[in-house]
Design a protein around this nucleic acid. Structure first.
Lengths: 117, 117
DNA sequence: ACCTATTTGTCCGTATGTATG
DNA sequence: CCATACATACGGACAAATAGG
């Protein structure tokens, strides 16, 4: 599992981690049944604290995306979705946004607005 | 200026506010030269603290989107962009995402990935 | 040009939450 | 579980710009 954390970002570290796991669960890079790295292992790999990883894992559990079992770690339970129709749309949208020098915060702000109705 | 704050959201309040102003600056709902509400006025209207509004305003100033002067308040200095090519893409993307029961966090996670941060 | 009252952003701490060790 | 460091959000006091007489 590949995850990148930016300590300088405004978003909390546990949220960055949860975000990236969500994306990888959604597109099948993490298939159902996959055992995720243990919190301790992942914390060490990312250079962040154990409790921060647990925070992210618990958020994902609360969303029904993973199951947490004592002794056996975290397991993916969210089925991958068919993102093929989305991939093209996303790539096109992001390319257009970049072409207009639109910042990521501005782009996501516009998307959140559209999503909220 | 219409802004909605969700105190229960994971995103910081000042970020929610900045996001919504960014969107309204981008699409011209807030034209260049417009004087934004004073921090005190907006804080009272939104039921949040003066300094939280100022935090958002200062972030927008650092991005070159608004000018802040004491006595005269905040003024929009970022020209509206041509979002016509984006609008259709955004609407289509969001509609597709909803059709696949994709959550907003997951969708934005995928977009952030594509954008490359 | 002056004065001054109001408006406005800035600076001082304080409490709570996040992240770490 | 506790102790520390940093960020968010809040409250009160302050200084500069503005507006009216």
């Amino acid at each position: 599992m590949i995850v990148v954390i930016d300590p300088a970002a405004t978003a909390p570290v546990f949220e960055q981690l949860a975000d990236q796991v969500r994306a990888q669960l959604a597109d099948g890079r993490i298939p159902v049944g996959t055992r995720l790295p243990s919190a301790r292992e992942l914390a060490e790999q990312l250079g962040i604290n154990l409790h921060t990883v647990l925070h992210a894992y618990q958020a994902l559990r609360d969303e029904g995306l993973i199951a947490l079992r004592r002794g056996s770690g975290a397991v993916a339970i969210a089925p991958a979705r068919d993102l093929a129709p989305l991939r093209a749309s996303i790539a096109e949208l992001v390319a257009t946004a970049k072409g207009h020098d639109l910042s990521l915060p501005t782009l996501t702000a516009l998307i959140r607005e559209e999503f909220g109705r």
